[in-house]
Computed example of a mutant assay.
Amino acid sequence: MPPTPESRTDDEVLAATDVTMLLRYGLTQDAFRGALFGDGAVAAAVTLDRLGVLPRSLVFVAEIVRSGGLAYAAGLPEPLPSPEAAALLRDWLSGAAQTATTPGAEAWAVRWLEAVAEIIALRRSTRRS
């Protein structure tokens, strides 16, 4: 009989999601947008929440993307306060900027960042309850 696989929490499974890949496809192809805003947003929220990112920090980055674009936001030296979270978000944004050349892709990126911020806020509010 094969050994029983080690059980993992939903957070652990989602934290292993390739957010960069979901951003690349989800911002440019309608067929992947549901996955980007579903598992992708939750995976990003779990990962960033573990790194201590505050929702307002992501909302600020969303405003930067809205006004300057994905490539500009990806080029920021510190898009988030902590170095580890900043490096991770920079990787996600630069990966998205490489492929998000279709009209409306940056608007979807802004909405996605705002969705991730909302999920982090919800996670935090349920932990306090």
Rank of each mutant, 00 (worst) to 15 (best):
F37Y: 10
R123G: 13
V61Y: 03
A31T: 10
G69H: 05
E106T: 09
G38T: 06
P79M: 07
S57R: 03
G26Y: 03
V65L: 02
L51S: 06
E84L: 14
A41G: 04
G52W: 12
S67K: 09
T17M: 02
L27N: 04
V110G: 01
L113F: 03
A73H: 05
A97T: 05
G69E: 03
A107M: 03
D49S: 14
S94F: 11
R124N: 10
L48M: 09
P2D: 14
Q98F: 11
E84I: 11
Q98V: 13
G40T: 02
P83V: 09
Q98L: 14
P77A: 07
A85P: 06
A73Y: 03
E12V: 05
E84C: 00
A87L: 10
A105W: 00
A87T: 11
G52R: 12
E84T: 14
W92R: 05
E12L: 06
R90I: 04
S129Y: 07
A44G: 15
T102C: 03
M1C: 10
V61N: 02
E114C: 07
R90C: 07
S67D: 12
V110R: 03
L113M: 07
G38Q: 08
G104L: 01
V116T: 08
T9G: 14
L88S: 02
W108D: 12
I64R: 13
L88Q: 09
G69A: 04
P83G: 08
E114D: 13
R111Q: 15
L48V: 02
V59L: 11
F32Q: 13
R56P: 00
G75D: 04
P55V: 07
I119C: 02
L48G: 02
E84S: 10
I120E: 05
R128D: 11
R123T: 07
F37C: 02
S7A: 14
D39R: 15
D18A: 11
L76I: 10
L48R: 05
E12I: 07
G75Q: 00
T9K: 07
V46A: 02
E118S: 12
D30Y: 12
F32S: 12
P83D: 12
Y25S: 09
L76C: 06
L14S: 01
D11T: 05
G95S: 10
T9V: 07
F32T: 06
A100V: 06
M21D: 14
V13K: 05
R90F: 01
T101S: 11
R8C: 03
S125Q: 14
G95E: 08
V53N: 08
L70P: 01
D39T: 14
P103T: 01
A100D: 01
A31N: 05
F37G: 01
I119M: 09
T47W: 00
R127H: 11
D91R: 15
V65D: 00
L88V: 07
D30N: 09
Q98R: 15
W108A: 10
D30A: 15
A35F: 11
T47N: 00
R111E: 15
L54F: 06
